[in-house]
Amino acid sequence: MSNMLNVALPKGRLGEKVYSLFEQAGFPCPSIKENNRKLIFENPEAGVRYFWVKPSDVAIYVERGAADIGVAGKDILLEYRPQVYELLDLKLGKCRMAVAAPKDFRDDPARTLRVATKFSRIASDYYAALGRDIDIIHLNGSIEIAPILGLSDVIVDIVETGTTLKENNLDVRETIVPISARLIANHAAFKFKNESIEKILQQMAALTE
């Protein structure tokens, strides 16, 4: 571990918003805005190194100590339960984890419910709490077509505006949990780089209030 603070940012639009929060918090890195394919950017003066990673991998980088802190969606934290500190709700990338079904679907509690999802653990925990017997069908994308093609009865997925659901003739039936981006920290980094992490935490808390 170097003394530089290593920050894993999620690639994409959310990552850009998150970076501007870090910039406002006093940890700028102008080279990150250059239009190129580089993935690692550092500003030794500010003592910070940023890297872009796939959003679902941010928590792994932080848990394993390759990154000291990072920004991950609550969906990823609930699904993979990485051993990290969840320091702050950044209130960015707000959406919800929901159960959706075709408009004409009628749930029969006497039958095992077939649930297609990318988030098997979240779906299992939700239905276990309801005492409902389900059959999980794990998919990696295009979850919305599963009920249309008869692969599943319902889906559990992230809903932002609901447009994709509507266009595929699906309705939200239940909201499982609200989702947003969270600032996370590696356990050991929190001890050994405490001053920098606390500074970022305080600045970002003030910015997101």
Partner: peptide, 9 residues
């Protein structure tokens, strides 16, 4: 307990 260089306790 934590030591510098390792990511967890």
């Amino acid at each position: 307990g934590f030591v510098k260089g390792l990511p967890d306790s």
